[in-house]
Every structure is written in C-alpha cells, then in structure tokens.
Design a protein around this nucleic acid. Structure first.
Lengths: 402, 402
DNA sequence: CTATTTTAATTTGCTAATCAAATTAAATAA
DNA sequence: TTATTTAATTTGATTAGCAAATTAAAATAG
C-alpha cells in the first residue's frame, strides 16, 4: 500500500509570492516585486490592492536610495503593516522563560523574562511557566491574550517543529510530549514551536544577515552548539522535522566523552564544560569558582599568554573549524553566519579559526563561502521565535484572505 | 544594488505536476494522480488527454494489485510512453567512456564502451572521446544522432551541472571549461552534465531505492567517495551547483594525508590508495603487484584472520561509519543508500559498520535512518546519466507542449 | 513656463487553467 | 435484471493572470 501525499501544497499562489517578496525586501516598490516574482505589473497591482484592502501591507513614501531613478513617476514603497497583528516570541531555557512582543513588521513592543529556580521541569510545569510568563508580559504591556495572533516558542533539544512535538529537551524531564497541543489548549491562540537553533536561522533570514542569501547556515554556540540550515530560502528540518545536530558531529574517533554519552562529539571539544574539564587539570586557580567565572579566568589567561590556557583554547578553535568545514564540504552554502549572544565566545569566532576552516574545504575553483559573525543582544533566541510566529501568522492570514 | 532574481520559476504548472506524478509511480491510474497532485478529476482528465495526444504518455490495462478495488469502473493505468524519445547516458572515467541508449521510460536499448589509453585528457580530447563513443554506439544500434533527444553525461570531479561548467576533473587536464557548450556545438542536440555521484542519486530516485523517499542521500564508493543529496525530491547541489564532498570531510585533526593535499579527509582513510599505503608497510606479500591485485590480497588476508590486515580494514570501516554519521547528524535523511558497483567494497558495507554508524547518531526518540545497500551492475553511473537526460528532455518536451 | 521624455502604476478586455456538479462508463453484488 | 460502486468525462462557470493601452507623476529640454 503506497502512501500518497499531495505535492500540490508547494504550488504558490500569486498572493504568496507577492507577500513574501515584500517581506524579504521590506520597503519595496511594485516595480521591484514585478521583477522578483516574474508576475506582470497588472497582476502585482491587483494583488497588492487586495493586500492593502485587507490591512496586511501599506504604502509608504519611497525611500530614495543612491541608485534611485532620476526621472519618471516616482515609486511608491510597500511594506508589511505593523499594526496588522501582534505576535509573541518566547524562549525556554534552564534558567528562565523570555518573552518578546512584536508587531507584524517585527518591531519590538516590549520584553519580559520570568526566572525559574528549577532548571529541569516536567511537561506540565513547563506549560505553567510559559503561560505565566506570557500572561505577565501581556499584563505589563497592557494587552489581552485576544490581542495576540500567534506565539512562537523556541525549545532547546530535539523538537519536531511541524508536528509540535518534543522528543527530548534538556530542560524538560518528560519525553515525547505534544507540547504544542498542550499550549494551544491552555492559551487558545495559534502556537508554533521549534528547536531554538532553527529559530535563530529564521531570525537571520527575516531580520538579519541571511536576508539576501538563499542557501546559508547559522551556527549558534551557547551551552551547546546549534545549527540551522536554510536551503533555497526554506528552513531544512530533516526528515522527522528535527534540526541538525552539529554539536554531535564526530570530530575524533573514540575521542573525548560528550555529555550525550558518545565520544568524539564536537561539543565535547568546544563547549564550556569541555574547556573547563581540561582546564581543571591544568590550572589550579580555577578550583571552587563558578563555571562562568572559571571561563572568564581561562580565556583571560589565554589572552595574556599563559601557554597551558592558550593551548586549550586553541585546540577548541581548531576543532570548531574542522566541524564547520565538514558542514561546508557537505552543504556548500554561500554564507555561514556565526551567531552569538555572549562575547566570551570570541575564541571561536576569530579570523584564525575562519582561515583554518577555509583551508579545510575541498574546493577547486568554486568560491568558498562568506563567513560573517553576528553578535546579537540578549534577545537573539527570543526574536527568532517571534520571527517564526510572524511566519506562521502570515500563512494563516493569507489563507483566510482566500 | 540588490540582485533580484525571479523566484517564480518554482511555480509548477498542472501539467508538470501530473507528468512527474506519473513518472514517480509509473503505471498509475488517473484517480491516484488526483490524490497525489491535489488537482480535480476534471483537470487530470484534461491534462492527461493532452499528454496522450502529444505522445508523452499512454494508457495501459490496469495492473490489479492486491488492494485493487472490488467493484466499480475499472481503473486505467497511465505510463510514460517509451517510444516518445530516445536518450543517451554517458559516463566518463580515466579508463573509458561508457554509453547507454535508453527509451523515454528508461528501458535500456543498447550499451557500449570505448576504452581510452590516456587516463588524463585535455578538454578537446575529452570532447573527441565522448563524441566518438556516442557515434560508435549509435552506429552499433543502427541509429542516427537526430534520433536522440538528449544526452546526459556524468563527469567525476567538481562540476557545476546547471551551468554546464567543469571546475576540475581528475580525468581532464584543463580546468574551468564550458564542457556543455563545447559538446552542444559538436553534437547539436541537448546536453546535460553533472557530477557523477549526483547522477547516481538521480538514478536511485528514478529507477532505484529512492523512489519512495523525499529526503535521502546516496553514497557511492569507487575511486573516491561520492555523495548525492536529494532534499524534498530535488537534487541538492549547493550554492554553486557543485556536489557535496563527503570524501573530503575531515575525520581526524591533522590526520592522514589525502591526495587532495589536505589532512584527515575521509578518503585518506577509506580509499584504495589509503588502505594500500598502510598495507604496504605491513605486508611484504604485496610488493610489485598491481593495485587491484593488492586490494584483493589485503581483503582476503583480512577475511582469513590476518590480524594486521584485519586491523587496517576495520579502521577504514569505522572511519567510514564516522563520516556517514556526520552526514546523518547534519541532514537526518530518512534513507541512506550505499551504492556500489564493485563487490570489493564489502568491507565498508557490512552490518557492523552500519551498527557503528547508528551508535554515533545523536537521537533521542527520533527514528534513525534506514540504510540500504544497492549493488548495481557495471552501468550504474551510466544509467544515472541516462536518468538525468530523461529529466532534461522531459522538461523541454513539457515546455514545447505549451 | 510649457512641451517632451521617462518611468511607475493602473485599467481594460481577453485567455487559459482549473473547479464543482452533473453525467456517463464499466465493473460487481444482490 | 437491477442496484451499487468506483472511475472517468463532460459541461458550464469562475478566476488568476496577461498584453496592450492608458494614466500618473516626476525630471529635463527648449
């Protein structure tokens, strides 16, 4: 018995094309939409009129860029209408739940975070925490839940986004839970969830450095090593909807022990705990201090020229380069974005590491990918969730519109 | 100045959808096309009528499978009409050029191969060799070049398929050549070329084990280690159209020297030359023999229990497992196809290797990919090229048809 | 200061793709 | 034979999208 799934969903309507063209090049005149989508001017006029009528986009005075046309009827820019919807992005970590409220154009309205004493929570406690954080942040902003069109949530771990299913998360004690369904029951608004690293990739695509690339990867180092892959303008999630596990890519046969239980994982060489494990046996000064303080000391010692510390940090950098090179050899993206929130990871993002990676790429003639470092603020992950929510709400809005 | 490329090409017409649905599930009734494409029965009737009129598909008596309906009007199967076109697949290697002539439905009409004394040829000599092989094979089959609707060609090395451009190939001394243009000038029929490993992936998708999967990878070990990636039913070529370089994925920091000049490449652990390099220092019996004979001896010794030989072969297998696991951690395909022509690579394809790979995959709950070994005959690569040619000719035929 | 040129956007029919609903076709079961 | 069931087709209507002509709004030439 063959399974037959419709492949027709892939067929984009003109409205979809126009809307995503506007979102991609935000304030953009109709004439450019014509060029980008390949639709006729007549069609673009009629579709955009419909979108304006429905309040999803709006006209704004054209921005006169350097290469603006000199004569002729002036262009009229179109942009997403921020007032169309309010959405929420949330990020779950071991220490807290973070919330950001943004408008439909991605403009940040307010943010809030609710600390949690318990680093690992049950499924129910997780839902409670998320709900409480959301309600509090709405209260602060003087909003009701009915004002919100959708919530995007980033969860660390192995998550099947499209199914709304969490196989496993380091901050949730229960496994294999239908977290999306639980949250929809509780909140009664659309909920979109996904692995947090995937959402950072979406944030880069919408708001960040990925706006002009069709194939790129975003690597985000924090506790672990996360990666999001965008192929042909679409987030690639693998066959079960789970994200890629760059951190558990093997860089050494029978190598260092990873917290996942396997050996030789990249994370076991570049994660905080991996560095401290080595440092602990080499530097006495560290004993008794907190993990964060220990990292500070280690990195400072390395900068000051302490040979032991420098060699630890240097090897981590080289291992990271090797892991990245493997991704490039497999994927050949045009752009690699190294997204980080904390500056302490400078040791992974310096030019030497990037040069080392480029040396490890097999390439004869073909250009090597551009590497860009994006140092976000604290809300990087949460804004990713918000971007995801905007995507989801857009899809619903366009479908409703017929 | 922003580059703006139309993203509209992606929009499939109903005819495209129907035709590819038929090709995928070859003999298939209209009612199933309705389910798969999401089009209405009316539309499917009218489109298929048009395709039949143009000779691209034909009706055949329905195959009564086990779960065939018991009552009602009987289904009428549709299939690609083999007589619609003849196409040619070719494969270039250091030793020869191989040709296969197939009909539009993929049925093999005849095959031929033309040996070449020179392992590395100039661009011009390469074109000469390919032309000669093609003309000879047509002559043998009593055909003229005008009978052929298109030629697909698999080339080892770094090839930008869509651009018809060869950055570098181990069998061509010139670099950066527009091989497609040269061949079109010479033959005056459509020519499609690509990296040979990519074409094996296409062959698996059309004729082989990849028919029912949307995300899979095909790993082919021969001289080097090749890989083709199919994402969402489409061959992924990376951002410059070149294939993935699994063979030059790094499995060891500062590891063994690879023929590409870098260190620690997978190929430097699992390729013929890598095994023989190690074996040469360990087994005297090998000296003076040909490379193929040496491999035979080595693998036989390992099977017989020679400890030295066994340890060499075993490490290669474990390295291969690690390389594969990295791909899985990054991609999470639903299926991995290990495609091989020669049986001597059994040592890479045994159950122990697959078990080792599965142990190295990060997965909590999510199912691990199915691994299948596909032992093709000699024409594996060439049939891949033919499959690619069929794709290309189909596209032209559908466009011509309006 | 008016006429001309230039580019953007819109309007006006028209065409082709696609669908829903009704109908016909071809089989089995009662 | 007649009813039932499923597949495929026909019919008539709707809609998305286009080409070509037109209008709009600016800069420049004379």
């Amino acid at each position: 018995m063959k399974k037959i799934k419709p492949i027709n969903d892939a067929r984009k309507t003109g409205t979809d094309l126009v809307f995503s063209a506007i979102r991609q090049n935000s304030p953009t005149p109709r004439i450019d939409i014509v060029k980008q989508t390949g639709l006729s001017p007549a069609t673009v006029t009629s579709i955009t009129a419909d979108l304006i009528l429905n309040g999803l986009i709006e006209e704004v005075p054209a921005v006169k860029s350097t290469n603006y046309q000199k004569r002729g009827r002036p262009r009229v820019d179109l942009k997403i209408r921020g007032d169309a919807h309010l959405v929420v992005g949330m990020q779950l970590t071991d220490k807290m739940a973070t919330v950001v409220i943004v408008d439909f154009d991605g403009k940040q309205i307010s943010d809030y975070s609710l600390p949690s004493a318990k680093p690992v929570r049950s499924a129910l406690e997780t839902v409670d925490l998320l709900e409480k954080a959301l309600r509090k942040s709405l209260e602060n902003a003087n909003l009701k839940i009915a004002d919100i069109s959708g919530v995007g949530i980033g969860i660390p771990g192995i998550v099947d986004g499209p199914a709304g299913y969490v196989y496993w998360s380091p901050t949730i004690s229960d496994r294999e839970i239908f977290l999306q369904d639980m949250l929809v029951d509780r909140l009664d608004i659309p909920v979109f969830l996904d692995n947090d690293a995937n959402l950072v990739a979406i944030a880069e695509q919408r708001f960040g450095l990925g706006r002009e690339a069709r194939n790129f990867i975003v690597v985000s180092v924090e506790e672990g090593v996360g990666m999001g892959i965008v192929i042909d303008g679409k987030l690639y999630r693998g066959s079960h909807g789970c994200g890629a596990e760059l951190g558990h890519t093997k860089v050494h046969l029978d190598g260092a022990l990873c917290r996942c239980g396997q050996r030789g994982c990249l994370e076991a060489y570049v994660g905080d705990y991996a560095l401290l494990r080595e440092a602990g046996t080499a530097l006495e000064a560290l004993s008794g201090k907190s993990a964060e303080l220990q990292m500070d000391i280690l990195l400072n010692e390395a900068k000051k020229g302490n040979q032991m510390a420098a060699s630890i940090v240097e090897r981590a950098g080289r291992m990271f380069a090797m892991g990245l090179a493997n991704v490039v050899n497999i994927f050949a993206p045009e752009l690699i974005i190294l997204a980080g929130r904390r500056m302490q990871y400078d040791y992974l993002y310096h030019d030497g590491m990037i040069a080392e990676m480029k040396k490890s790429i097999m390439q004869v003639g073909a250009p090597s990918p551009e590497v860009r470092v994006h140092k976000w603020g604290d809300l990087m992950w949460t804004m990713g969730a918000a971007a995801f929510a905007i995507d989801g709400v857009s899809e619903i809005a366009l479908k409703d519109l017929n």
